[in-house]
Amino acid sequence: MTFYFGDLLPFSSQLAAALWVSIYITLIAMAVGSGFGVLLYLGKAGTLPVVPQVSSAYIEVFRNTPLLVQLYLIYFGLPELGVNLNPTWAGIVALTLNNAAYTAEIYRAGFESVPGGLVEAGRALGMRGSQVFRHVVFMPATRNVFPALTNQFILLFLASSIASIIGLPELMNSILNINSETYRTFEILAVGGLLYFVVSGVFALGSKAMESYLFRWGVRSRA
């Protein structure tokens, strides 16, 4: 068995374009999904009637079923109800809804881990609830959730490859197309895997750099 990567060269621009699709569907799903995730967390933690139960149910259902099945329900199921989404939109919607459930749990853990003493100190200084949230709780909570959120971003990027199964033209899909055109299976899978690996590594390093810049105040607050 011999390896020959030369056959892949003509496909490099196709791979680059597909990689960009993977990145931007991840960015959309992360941005919209984490916004939705905050709402889910607030809904779950809040005191409105019914909303906490609905939020909890949403989070549990999405966290306890495979992304692929969620994707199938959206892509194959929704047309039954008259909603036709192309693969790209179906993929983005599935990734977004899925991501929201996970980020909601990340926010919950982040906000719950802010020491109660900080809230008390803010209140003892005469701050209103909203001021305590903005000036006292928000930054430590963000610091607490930041590593988990960037980790989630990387996992979402890797998970976006699942959308190739319904034909979303992202990196994994492009890898499979190139495989069927060249039969350079090992080579294209290796190159594809390397691309995912390098990009997720760059994200990880970038998030570390961002973290040390944003949270220069260092050590976690004491109890």
């Binding site: 998970a159 490859s161 895997g193």
Partner: peptide, 22 residues
Amino acid sequence: YVVRGIPLLIIVFFAYFGIPLV
């Protein structure tokens, strides 16, 4: 780090196409 940095689908296809080749 290698396995965690790549999608599971890549691993599945590696096993599926790769083992018969090797």
